[in-house]
């Protein structure tokens, strides 16, 4: 076991996978000599060389298109987009190419690229270093969307993503990149995709979250327990495709559901969760299904902590559904 934070766990996974398979190649802006602006690839350039750790020209569409082409030829390309806010020039390559190659070619061509990218607010990064666009990708058949919330999952999920034969958007919660360390096995292990975790068991209210917001949600559950409300917390880990069984079991037990996400509320991933629960298990519900989310505004800068869900905001919703 080693003590690692999230960003080091990610680097560990990359290094182990590159050791295991010489066809794993990473590419992106500043990921080589500089080791990435968040140091997620530190040391990999020295160890694996410029042919496997590519400092690319500054062009996100180019990075993803180049990775798609590499992967069609059997290379496991793992591009980094420096901030997910910069991913939009590559949208066409992701939505129309990466996600659709297998389908449009009748299953002949596949490009299982893993796109790593730090996302999310709370780092004083302002509008273009703070967004959380997971719903845009979750609305794209052909992609898998993975968001770890802790070092153990970050390593195990990234290894699973790299070994997957489907393309994966791997969103890294940069706000908690270095927030805490935990024991992570040195060995090779995987955390399966499309599998949620119960991070806290409870019987009164189900809280569903992922990534950085999982920790806000856990804090809210702690606050609620001081008031005698027993929350269950689900960490989705893969938001698309979803682990429906874990959600089903929990929401049938509690009859009260709150999702906690940091992207704008309207048409955000919480809306999908609410719809799923309402469509399938409305008869189990004791209270309205609530979304705690970012507000429907562009990401603010100095007011970001008012924009993002806080434990207090989540707690209010817990009280509301509990007392409904």
């Amino acid at each position: 076991m080693v003590e690692l934070n999230i960003v080091d766990a990610i680097k560990y996974a990359l290094e182990q996978e590159m050791d295991r398979d010489k066809d794993v190649i990473i590419l992106g802006e500043d990921i080589g000599k500089n080791g990435g602006v968040f140091r997620a690839t530190q040391g990999l350039y020295d160890k694996f060389g410029p042919e496997r750790v590519l400092d690319t020209p500054l062009n996100e569409s180019g990075i993803i298109g180049f990775a798609v082409g590499m992967s069609l030829y059997g290379i496991k390309a793992v591009p980094e987009i420096q901030f997910i806010d910069f991913i939009f020039p590559a949208f066409d390559q992701i939505l129309s190419e990466l996600a659709k190659f297998r389908y449009r070619s009748g299953g002949q061509f596949t490009c299982p690229v893993v796109i790593r990218s730090p996302y999310g607010g709370g780092v004083r990064g302002a509008h273009y270093h703070s967004q959380s666009p997971e719903s845009l990708f979750a609305h794209t058949p052909g992609l898998k969307v993975v968001v770890p919330s802790n070092p153990y999952d970050a390593k195990g999920l990234l290894i699973s993503a790299i070994r997957s034969n489907d393309p994966v958007i791997f969103m890294e919660p940069k706000r908690i990149y270095r927030a805490f360390k935990e024991e992570v096995p040195e060995d090779d292990y995987t955390v399966p995709l499309e599998s949620a975790a119960i991070t806290r068991e409870g019987k009164d209210v189900t809280l569903i979250s992922y990534g950085a917001m999982l920790h806000i949600t856990m804090d809210a559950a702690d606050l609620a327990s001081e008031e005698g409300i027993d929350c269950e917390v689900i960490d989705l880990r893969t938001i698309y495709p979803l682990d429906i069984d874990t959600i089903e079991e929990s929401v049938k037990k509690t009859g009260r559901v709150i999702s906690v996400t940091e992207a704008p509320k309207t048409a955000g991933f919480g809306a999908e969760l609410s719809a799923l629960v309402a469509e399938r298990w409305i008869e189990y519900m004791e209270a309205p299904i609530i979304r705690v989310a970012g507000y429907d505004v562009p990401f603010p800068f100095v007011l970001e902590h008012d924009y993002m869900p806080t434990p207090e905001r989540v707690l209010d919703s817990i009280r509301y559904v509990y007392n409904y």
Binding site: F66, V68, S71, Y73
Partner: peptide
């Protein structure tokens, strides 16, 4: 879209 993909495929062959 295929232009940059072709460059990537060629890189893979070169690698």
């Amino acid at each position: 879209t295929q232009i940059v993909q072709a460059a990537g495929t060629a890189y893979a062959s070169k690698y």
